[in-house]
Amino acid sequence: MAILVYAESQNGKFKKSSYEAVSYGRALADESNQNLVVISINSEEPKVLANYGPDKVLSIKDASLINFTAQNFANAISEYAKKEEASILVLSSTADSKYFVPLLAVKLDAGLASNVVSSPISISPLVVKRSCFTNKAFNNTTLKGSTNIICVLSNSFGVHEKQSQPEIIEVNTSAYNDNKVKVKSVDKVIGTVSIADADIVVSGGRGLKGPENWHLIEGLASTLGAATACSKPVSDMGWRPHTEHVGQTGKPVASNLYIAIGISGAIQHLAGINASKVKVVINNDSEAPFFKVADYGIIGDAFDVVPKLTEKLKAFKSQ
């Protein structure tokens, strides 16, 4: 019996959410007196995982898993989960993990809870708290499979360092050849932070009056190393691409800091960003609903406040 964590990497480097998943696995392993086994796939730095407490690392190097495909990743992880007799699997709630985890659950005949926001409420039976109604509420879910899978929401449990001396086993294979779905091409914006990976998100709404004013958002975002996002009307009017739309029918946001500029705060928008820890609103309408959910607010004109804020932050960062 073991707790098994899949630590997701991209271009050989682990995502921050992977360290959070390993930290979660460590806590679970301690509470249930089991070993913590971490799987990495084509990572160049499996040793880094020793900072987060695994007992064993399976570093899989597999040419057939260089491109992500849901079926091959589900096949690989289910194979190692069976070999290690995993009782609970822990993954992060990234887009790729959420894509393949339902396949994995069927292969392992496992119970599955996604968007889990805190350490288990109880181990036996296994009860976890997850976000539901698009962050408008939480529910306690009891997982009843003989194997169970938990997907941890980003920035919810946190990264907890804990040094260990894991046995690192390198496994070289080329074993996964399902080609029901093939990747033809990937079109990624290079050099910007994606909303899913971002610690800080700067988001603009209709208050910015037009796409020509987006340099204000981009300037602030690049000063903070943040991702840019937008409200639904902005993407509907074609000012910004759909991939930036955050909210109930857009992308969910679970960043540490969310800065909303010229966004009034429709209930659907607030639902989508509610999992963010700290929210700042800049709006000239003091009645805007966003002020009810924000931690900090400035009632003022974005065209006046944002350039000043960007300048001050530049100065602050260079200190």
């Binding site: 539901c132 306690n140 009843k144 900090y296």
Partner: peptide, 20 residues
């Protein structure tokens, strides 16, 4: 059936915004 939802909870009521 591999899971059940036992209990719901609403997010804690937010303290009021700090205006700057």
């Amino acid at each position: 059936v591999k899971s059940s939802v036992d209990q719901f909870e609403k997010p804690p009521v937010k303290g009021s915004v700090k205006l700057v």
